[in-house]
Design a protein around this nucleic acid. Structure first.
Lengths: 242, 242
DNA sequence: CGAATAGTTGAGGACTATCAAAAGTGGTGG
DNA sequence: CCACCACTTTTGATAGTCCTCAACTATTCG
């Protein structure tokens, strides 16, 4: 996704949440930024750092993760093009988690003081960005439930469903099937399972024809069946606002 | 906590994040509200509802939870006096989770359109509230890691540590010990475990002298030992901003 | 004081983890 | 274009954490 498209998509997203006027739109469009490439596995934010900028994903995919004292990793969310990835990093003090690229992509980097100026002069834009954070929080709540209360098959099915819908929204996939960009080890870290168990669980889902795998391309023969098996209810994504 | 104290505490909290001017403070103090009592177990927000107000906890404790399709409950966070509990309920469309009282308390209910008016006319206040949401999101991320990657002893120890620190901040406890307000069943739903296993885990922690229990009063003989055992690092609470 | 709620204990089973190794995939350089 | 190396996926065997079911005890509150 090139920059102008990402910016316009962001404005459209804001307008689904808050009624903007022309001056709001102009202010968003005139945010200063620099476009940068990032490679797979590159860190965009490191836990403990003091970021002074905010980042909009233009293309590619990133994930956020934390590491326990023992060194176990937990992936806590995935971000797609159009998402802001470190508003928190810049409004809070120290980054409390890592942001890392899943695959190569591009980002627009905006100095944090410019974002603050924007939201102080255009409060409706600020409110729209706040809603972004509220939706993120809702997704985290669902993830807490996912890893806390669902058995492995549902847990993985749920992640596949969420990924499908969010990629679909970013016009990068459909719920019929998509290129799944995570290794099984990463999927394990997102699900709170071991890679070995993820592998067995995927095979179990495939044996029931809930998914079909070819390399890392996943086909979903019957979306509703996978959705229902996984207990996936997209209300928490607040897609009417996305 | 009576209302004025809660309101002033809230303003103080905002000022730790954003420099407010006198007009900002006046605007916050003049928010219209009604004070209501709530009883233990009472629902403040129900999943699927369309709230038209926002709620500030004045006293008492509440928790947020979600329920899977199979009926299993997952508690996703705890809130203490001074916290706003359903900003999301009012800026988003439908509530995506439940908010329920842990113990009796009081809340100030503010009409949502008044909150919107406040943040549109006083963007710095809006930014401070936004930071509230960002801190919440950080806590959710930690909870994802807690239930996803920590074994039962650490998981429960971590919840006890977070509770202690947050109650301490609300001037309701100290890390030396406190009245723990959850049943073991609720603790189980927060930890993603069964009540039986929570019971055994608590006894195991007690056997190691990491905690001492008398009824529901918990004493922590050695805070640093419990903290280290649990992998509790309070950075994620962003207490400098709270 | 009695009913309801909460906490405790035991036995057995299920789900997931661990350890180890083989097989497949992808990229790189000679 | 093939050999090679690193990474990823797959498989088997075994272990362990945590769950289920069930009953009993303690506490709380009307």
């Amino acid at each position: 996704m090139e920059l102008s498209k990402a910016l316009e998509q962001m404005i459209r997203r804001f307008e689904r949440r808050v009624q903007l006027d022309e001056s709001d739109r102009i202010a968003v469009r005139s945010l200063p930024f620099t476009v940068k490439q990032f490679e797979a596995n590159q860190y965009l934010v490191r836990e403990g750092s003091l970021p002074d900028h905010s980042t909009l994903i233009l293309s590619g995919l990133v994930f956020r993760h934390k590491v326990t004292a023992e060194g176990d990793r937990q992936i806590v969310s995935i971000n797609v093009p159009g998402d802001f990835v470190d508003l928190e990093g810049s409004l809070l003090t120290r980054a409390d988690h890592n942001v890392q690229a899943l695959i190569r992509g591009e980002m627009a980097v905006v100095p944090m003081n410019e974002v603050v100026k924007l939201i102080d002069s255009h409060p409706r834009v600020g409110r729209a960005m706040w809603i972004d954070t509220l939706v993120d929080a809702s997704i985290y709540r669902e993830w807490v439930m996912n890893v806390g209360r669902r058995p492995a098959r549902q847990r993985i099915g749920h992640i596949l469903c969420e990924f499908a819908r969010r990629l679909e929204l970013a016009e990068l996939a459909s719920t019929a099937g998509y290129q799944f960009p995570m290794t099984q080890e990463q999927l394990a870290d997102a699900a709170g399972l071991t890679p070995v168990h993820v592998n067995r669980t995927l095979k179990s889902l495939e044996a029931d024809n809930l998914i079909v795998r070819k390399r890392r391309y996943i086909t979903i023969p019957d979306w509703e069946r996978l959705r229902d098996m996984s207990g996936f209810n997209e209300l928490y994504l607040h897609l009417d606002l996305a």
